[in-house]
Design a protein around this nucleic acid. Structure first.
Length: 284
DNA sequence: CGTTGAACCTGTTTGC
DNA sequence: TGCAAACAGGTTCAAC
């Protein structure tokens, strides 16, 4: 569910209701997705949430401890099925609610995640810096020149590279397929083989797709909801993702689905030309 | 460097 | 209807 636009939408919603609030109490369910559950249980109560940021697909809740200890940050990743949102305590907690933070306005910030592919960690100082250092560039901020230069240095397939969070962070399977469709680039093209025009088109497509998805509150495929429980609407604008067998919006050819980097990849076989296969027929 | 497949988990959809 | 397989918005790791 959660790629950059969904996390960004959630972050904007959470800012309004959670920043400036103090965490009074923490209750945990299953904890196998938490780096150090004891540290969370011990460290969160008493903390003031001073800011909420998005780093790629991660949430970063900046925390100010009550008793003058060093500031820390709660890092949250939603994995495939995670969700983080405020609720009234009277609202029954759904199945798979694993973290409940009782806030000083009487509400509960709940983390729910059926598959528990998400991640949570309370970090400060060097550990936090090390975590952030593993991340790639923001797709909405990287310049076209730098994007092109970095592509030129890579022999990986473009789809695999777009999913690589140490290259760019925040793009997942939906927005990779949507960006490639818009830029008319086949997912198995080698990154370094893209022409300057194609790299430029991809840079623009990524920005356009992500910006529009944020504007529409993200994509709700099955269960994504924002901080107020409302779905996103960008799924209505998908042109490739999950459209196997349906006509291409540009040329009406049937959208195909293949496996690239182990992920279902959707593309138009007519608009997004496959690279010339590299069967060596002659050798000088 | 890069690729593939498996693993981590639960739920839903699809196929026989 | 029933049951099994396939698949899902993600990441990581071993093996090649």
């Amino acid at each position: 569910m959660p790629e950059l636009p969904e996390v960004e939408t959630l972050v904007r919603g959470l800012r309004k209701s959670v920043v400036g609030r103090r965490i009074l109490e923490v209750r945990l369910g299953k904890t196998d997705f938490i780096d150090d559950a004891a540290a969370i249980e011990r460290g969160l109560p008493g903390c003031l949430v001073t800011a909420i940021e998005r780093v790629g697909k991660f949430f970063l809740l900046r925390l100010k401890p009550a008793n003058g200890r060093v500031p820390a940050a709660l890092l949250v990743h939603l994995g495939m099925t995670g969700h983080l949102s405020p609720h009234r305590p009277a609202e029954p907690a759904p199945k798979h609610t694993h973290v409940v933070m009782r806030m000083d306005d009487g509400r509960e910030l709940r983390y729910t995640d059926p598959r528990r592919f998400g991640r949570m960690a309370l970090l400060s100082g060097a550990a936090l810096a090390a975590e952030l250092a593993r991340h790639g560039r923001e797709p909405l901020e990287i310049s076209e020149a730098e994007f092109r230069a970095r592509l030129a240095a890579r022999r990986a397939r473009i789809k695999a590279l777009l999913l690589d969070q140490s290259f760019l962070h925040g793009i997942g399977n939906i927005y990779a397929d949507e960006s490639l469709w818009r830029a008319r680039i086949h997912p198995i093209r080698v990154a370094a083989s893209l022409t300057q025009q194609q790299a430029r088109a991809l840079h623009r497509a990524i920005r356009k797709v992500l910006a529009e998805a944020i504007r529409l509150g993200g994509s709700s495929i099955s269960d994504y909801r924002d901080a107020e429980g409302r779905p996103g609407f960008f799924q209505l604008r998908h042109r490739a993702y999950d459209r196997e067998g349906k006509p291409c919006f540009r040329c009406h050819a049937r959208i195909r689905r293949i496996l690239v980097a182990g992920r279902g990849s959707h593309f138009c076989p007519r608009c997004q030309r496959a690279p010339r296969s590299k069967k060596r027929t002659s050798k000088p």
